[in-house]
């Protein structure tokens, strides 16, 4: 293998091919992290709503989850990018088409975030439901309101229990960020393909991309394992989902 091509001036943009790789890594991380923030916040809200006793809150959350997880990510990506600007009111559509900064990137972030939110919601719901009903009763019996019971009793335990599946979901959004290349975001996989087309050093550049993905996955996995250890409740041997 010869990695010398990395330091040659790239076909365009003024830098080297190494600069293209680095830029690809950056976009992959931006997509994953920003998408995750949406997924985590929205998914947590939806997951909680799916467990509350009020049908008027539970049903919309359930519909959201079913819609977003039963349509392929690629289709959702195209809908955000090609369809939404056409079916929203004209002024908003014009803004989306002509004035929104970095439309490909932000569309991809919202798409990844809202798609992953449906999966996060399922994990949060499963975490809450794995906690024995007696805990809700105990929270209410000492005079907490239902929201207080969620805040102080159910959620602190649920989030601890679901750290491993949430880690998996983060790694999933990280890998899924490559789907953004279909609407033109030059993240890592797109850069790898582009560099292979310009340099014909396909094996080398794919190897680099693979190693970068694997290293980031490893880093995240070990960090989360460490956090899980730190967050462990002394003496607690509990339900860990599956």
């Amino acid at each position: 293998m010869d990695f010398g091509f990395l330091f040659e001036p790239a076909f365009s943009g003024g830098g080297t091919y190494l600069d293209w790789v680095i830029s690809g890594i950056q976009w992959t991380l931006y997509l994953s992290v920003l998408g995750w923030i949406i997924a985590f916040v929205l998914g947590s809200i939806l997951g909680v709503l799916r467990t509350v006793p009020l049908a008027i809150l539970r049903v919309p959350a359930t519909i959201y989850v079913e819609v977003f997880r039963n349509i392929p990510l690629l289709v959702q990506m195209f809908i955000w990018y090609f369809v939404v600007p056409e079916i929203v009111p004209k002024a908003a559509g014009d803004w989306l088409k002509t004035q929104m900064p970095m439309p490909e990137f932000w569309n991809a972030v919202f798409c990844l975030g809202t798609y992953t939110a449906s999966r996060v919601a399922e994990q949060v719901r499963a975490g809450i439901q794995s906690i024995p009903r007696g805990q809700v009763h105990a929270g209410l019996a000492i005079g907490l309101t239902l929201p207080q019971t969620y805040r102080h009793v159910l959620l602190p335990m649920s989030y601890r229990i679901i750290i491993p599946p949430l880690t998996t979901e983060f790694l999933t959004i990280f890998k899924n960020s490559s789907v953004a290349l279909t609407i033109g975001v030059l993240e890592l996989t797109a850069q790898a393909r582009q560099i292979s087309e310009y340099t014909f050093q396909t094996f080398e550049i794919f190897t680099i991309a693979t190693v970068v993905y694997a290293l980031i996955t490893l880093t995240v996995t070990f960090t989360m394992r460490w956090i899980e250890g730190r967050a462990r409740v002394p003496g607690y041997i509990g339900t860990t989902g599956k």
Binding site: P132, G134, Q135, H137, A138, G139, L140, A141, I142, G143, L144, T145, Q148, H152, V153, P156, M157, R160, V233, G235, Y236, G238
Partner: peptide
């Protein structure tokens, strides 16, 4: 207001239901 009423009544459960965290 149930929370206020419950606060005045102590309850002990079969499975203790202490908050594990």
């Amino acid at each position: 207001r149930l929370p206020q009423l419950r606060a005045k009544i102590g309850m002990v459960f079969q499975h203790f239901e202490l908050f594990p965290h």
